[in-house]
Lab assay of single mutants.
Amino acid sequence: RYTFRTRGPEQMKRVVEWARRQNLSYRVEVHGDEYIIHAE
């Protein structure tokens, strides 16, 4: 189980790509310009 905090969509997309390659399920929360990605 991982939690990532990123700023801006570019970093968020990179984390999502990584999670997909690992076959993890993930969800993204948006708080202003901060993205929180939960993957497991």
Results as ranks from 00 to 15, higher is better:
R1V: 13
R1I: 11
R1Q: 11
R1K: 13
R1W: 11
Y2G: 02
Y2K: 03
Y2W: 14
Y2A: 03
Y2V: 06
Y2H: 05
Y2L: 09
T3W: 06
T3R: 07
T3P: 02
T3E: 08
T3V: 14
T3S: 06
T3L: 10
F4G: 01
F4V: 05
F4K: 01
F4Q: 00
F4P: 00
F4T: 01
R5Y: 13
R5K: 10
R5D: 01
R5V: 14
R5T: 10
R5I: 14
T6L: 11
T6A: 15
T6V: 15
T6F: 09
T6S: 04
R7V: 10
R7S: 10
R7N: 11
R7Y: 11
R7H: 12
R7Q: 10
R7T: 12
R7P: 05
G8L: 15
G8V: 15
G8F: 15
G8H: 15
G8P: 01
G8M: 14
P9N: 10
P9W: 15
P9V: 15
P9K: 15
P9L: 15
P9I: 15
E10A: 11
E10F: 05
E10Q: 09
E10K: 08
E10Y: 07
E10V: 07
Q11R: 08
Q11L: 09
Q11W: 06
Q11P: 04
Q11F: 06
Q11A: 14
Q11G: 13
M12L: 11
M12E: 01
M12R: 03
M12S: 03
M12V: 09
M12H: 02
K13F: 10
K13Q: 13
K13P: 00
K13S: 08
K13M: 13
K13C: 09
R14N: 07
R14S: 07
R14Q: 12
R14T: 08
R14W: 09
R14D: 05
V15R: 02
V15I: 15
V15L: 10
V15M: 06
V15N: 00
V15K: 01
V15A: 05
V15T: 03
V16P: 00
V16F: 04
V16K: 03
V16N: 01
V16E: 04
V16W: 02
V16M: 05
E17Y: 05
E17M: 09
E17I: 06
E17C: 08
E17N: 07
E17T: 06
E17K: 06
W18R: 01
W18C: 05
W18F: 03
W18S: 01
W18Y: 03
W18A: 02
W18Q: 01
W18G: 00
A19E: 00
A19D: 00
A19R: 00
A19W: 02
A19T: 03
R20M: 13
R20V: 14
R20F: 06
R20S: 08
R20D: 06
R21Q: 13
R21P: 00
R21D: 08
R21F: 06
R21H: 08
R21V: 07
R21I: 08
Q22M: 15
Q22G: 05
Q22L: 13
Q22N: 15
Q22R: 12
Q22I: 05
N23E: 06
N23R: 08
N23L: 06
N23S: 07
L24C: 04
L24D: 00
L24N: 01
L24S: 01
S25P: 05
S25L: 12
S25Y: 12
S25Q: 12
S25A: 11
Y26W: 12
Y26R: 00
Y26G: 00
R27A: 07
R27E: 09
R27T: 14
V28D: 00
V28N: 00
V28S: 01
V28W: 04
V28P: 00
V28L: 06
V28F: 03
V28Y: 03
V28A: 02
V28I: 13
E29A: 04
E29V: 10
E29S: 06
E29M: 08
E29Q: 07
E29T: 09
E29Y: 12
V30F: 11
V30P: 05
V30H: 10
V30I: 13
V30E: 08
H31A: 10
H31E: 13
H31T: 08
H31N: 12
H31Y: 12
H31F: 12
G32Q: 06
G32T: 04
G32M: 06
G32E: 07
D33L: 07
D33W: 06
D33T: 09
D33M: 07
D33C: 04
D33N: 12
D33V: 07
D33Y: 07
D33G: 10
E34F: 14
E34A: 07
E34S: 08
E34C: 03
E34K: 05
E34L: 14
Y35K: 02
Y35L: 04
Y35R: 03
Y35G: 02
Y35I: 07
Y35E: 01
Y35H: 04
Y35Q: 03
I36M: 04
I36Q: 02
I36V: 12
I36A: 02
I36L: 08
I36W: 12
I36T: 06
I37Q: 00
I37W: 02
I37S: 00
H38I: 14
H38V: 13
H38T: 14
H38G: 01
H38W: 11
A39W: 11
A39E: 01
A39G: 02
A39V: 15
A39T: 13
A39Q: 01
E40I: 11
E40A: 12
E40K: 08
